[in-house]
Simulated scan of single mutants.
Amino acid sequence: MVRTVIALLRHGDYHQQADTPSALQPWPLTETGRAQARAAAPQLMDFCAEHQLTLAHQIDCSSLLRAWQTAQILADELTRLTGTAVTTASFDALWERNVGSAANLTTTQIQQAVASDPRCPPLPDNWKSDSHFRLPLPGAESLMDAGHRVASHIEGAMTNTGSDPQLKVFVGHGAAIRHAASVMGALAESDIPTLSMYHAQPVFLERIDDHWHHIGGNWKIRHREAHAD
């Protein structure tokens, strides 16, 4: 049976607007973020060599700028290292959790907007981190909604991977990836709040007997930090 292995990467460090849920922010990578993206390439190559995998030639990434830039820099570095062209394809399905009409408002502004709408109940204190809470605003998703969306894309992308064992790379956003890993069975839902992801550091999952398992790379341990993608 052909091995099915994926690498999940959070985008690199970027110019994130302060105190703003980061789903649809349009800002680019910082220089640190660009260096993080380049540094991920040899890690992926080492993993492929250790596990006797071929690197898939297309990286799937979120269409948001910071993820696209991370994937593009990573693809360029992998092309340089391997001598074989690695390309990218961007997808809205790999976005972070969408806060809908509140996109790019600060946390305080979101709370004020909800409080000023007589149709909306008060926000719970943990509204940003509750996996199942969806803002009562048009277009908003819960974190778990985003996880299902990302997991669906990953599963669909892995249905036709050829006959050779490959490593397929996905670049997206921390919270959506963690929730996707839970949807896919590789991470317990109860563990999601305790974990985050390092910028541009791969976490490796393998599908074994129709179940996904964490086989490499480190989740980041959260220390009561506020939610950020």
Rank of each mutant, 00 (worst) to 15 (best):
M1Y: 09
R3K: 14
V5A: 09
L8C: 00
L9R: 10
R10C: 08
R10M: 06
H11F: 08
Y14L: 10
A18G: 06
T20W: 07
P21S: 11
L29Y: 08
T32A: 15
R34C: 07
Q36E: 13
Q36Y: 05
A37P: 03
A39G: 08
Q43I: 10
Q43A: 13
C48P: 06
H51D: 10
L53K: 01
L53D: 02
T54Y: 09
A56T: 02
D60A: 13
S62G: 00
L64N: 10
L65N: 08
L65R: 12
T70N: 00
T70I: 10
Q72T: 15
L74D: 09
A75M: 12
L78D: 04
R80S: 09
L81F: 00
T82F: 02
A85Q: 13
S90T: 06
F91M: 01
L94S: 05
L94I: 00
A103P: 01
N104Q: 11
L105S: 06
V114F: 07
R119S: 14
R119A: 15
P121H: 15
W127Y: 09
S129C: 12
R134I: 06
L135T: 07
L137I: 09
G139I: 03
A140Y: 02
L143W: 09
R149Q: 07
G156A: 13
A157W: 11
T159K: 14
D164V: 12
D164Y: 15
Q166R: 15
K168G: 05
A175C: 11
A176E: 06
A176H: 08
A180L: 03
A181C: 10
V183G: 06
G185Y: 09
A188R: 13
P193W: 09
S196V: 06
S196R: 14
H199V: 07
H199D: 12
Q201S: 14
P202L: 09
I208N: 11
D209E: 14
D210V: 01
H211M: 13
H214K: 11
I215Q: 08
I215W: 04
I221M: 06
R222Q: 05
H223V: 01
R224Y: 03
